[in-house]
Design a protein around this nucleic acid. Structure first.
Lengths: 228, 228
DNA sequence: AAGTGAATGTCGAGG
DNA sequence: CCTCGACGTTCACTT
């Protein structure tokens, strides 16, 4: 890992072209040759970057300025960095990172709802998770109190895409006589947050919406919240 | 901008929880208090981060180790960094960045196709760009060789979402007698790359697909390619 | 290798 | 302020 603080000007050419005027920035060069250009603001996304695999070639312009050329041989992307003044340049051996452990994403939400389908609708019971169809798996296939099939689509953030997805599933499922024997398959759109447009579209299509409280669900599994 | 190289262990709690075991990493602390944790690999996304607005508080554990606590008062996200060994710690004043100038994204594709609708279908002419409807603007509204209306949806990468979007437009447009006077409004789905699933869905719905060559289109506008 | 869906997405425009 | 769609999306996982 090499860290360079420098006054520089940068040009990128790849899927788009982009230009950064001369200014002081931080250049991070990783062991795999990838390069990140950061300014003192914005969020985690660099102003500009090159993804691996790529190689950095150090050269000079006619007038003696240092110029880096970073190229990705697979995509033909190039990043040209003109260095007007190097303020700091240091290298460090970081070793291999053990990696990030995550908890609390959509998969966990699905697991929790699979364990507690009754929180979505009174009397709902799980038939199976990841119920397979020709166009992909339905998150939860359930049966309601009177024995009708219910397809549940789970999102962390519920927007129109999720409603469209569930609609496609329902169209397909409602062609299956095994599921529709007792009546049409209903849909429930479950998310931690449901956007107004998504709610309107869902309602228009007869799909129920369920806003899920992740912490409350987790509480159901937490021994300290149990009654016995 | 402060750059710290340190052996550290990190815990994040916010929309999810995440943990990074003890290892050597680069910590980037920006002027707005935001923090980025980078390892010597991966791409531009940090292993962990805190977005502004947030504040960094430097403290110590019982056993004397340095501990940083970064908090975002709005979202209640917290990042706890336990520093076992600081290898390097430097600060630099970068000033304000003039910002990035981009060229070559979807807007340009739309401009080029608006100038050359005939490349989408023989005899197609532009009626107007960003044709307004109740559910949003249609990228290009055109008329074909025999006077029928054609709605064009443009994407850089064409996947199912785009087909759904165009379908919604077509449903709405086909209720307008002014447009359907001569016959139903047709749809063209134009993208630099069309995913197989999107193509199948489009075809199933009678929507034509057009793969657009950005460079060739640009060539039509380039004086050096003109015949006269 | 290619496709598909999630993401602590981020970012910017427009209402 | 919120909502929506694009993104050099990136990323992980499946086929």
């Amino acid at each position: 890992m090499r860290l360079v603080v420098a006054r520089c000007q940068i040009d990128y050419a790849g899927r788009l072209t982009a230009h950064l005027p001369m200014a002081t920035r931080v250049l991070m060069i990783k062991a795999d040759g990838s390069v990140l250009v950061h300014s003192d603001g914005g969020s985690y996304k660099p102003l500009n970057w090159m993804s691996p695999p790529c190689t950095l070639r150090e050269g000079a312009t006619e007038d003696g300025q240092v110029e880096w050329t970073v190229t990705n041989p697979k995509t033909d992307d190039t990043l040209r960095i003109l260095l007007a003044e190097v303020i700091s340049d240091s290298s460090h051996d970081l070793g291999i990172d053990p990696g990030l452990q995550k908890d609390g994403v959509e998969k966990h939400l699905q697991e929790l709802l699979a364990d507690h389908p009754g929180t979505l609708a009174e009397g709902l019971t799980l038939v199976r998770r990841e119920y397979p169809t020709a166009i992909g798996p339905v998150d939860l296939m359930c049966r309601d109190a009177v024995g009708l099939s219910v397809a549940v689509e789970i999102k962390r953030r519920g927007d129109i895409d999720g409603v469209e997805q569930l609609t496609r599933y329902l169209e397909l499922l409602n062609r299956d006589p095994l599921l529709t024997g007792n009546g049409a398959v209903r849909g429930i759109f479950a998310a931690q947050e449901i956007k107004p447009q998504a709610r309107v579209l869902a309602t228009d299509r007869g799909i129920a919406c369920a806003v899920v409280d992740y912490d409350a669900l987790r509480g159901l599994d937490d021994p300290s919240h149990r009654l016995f």
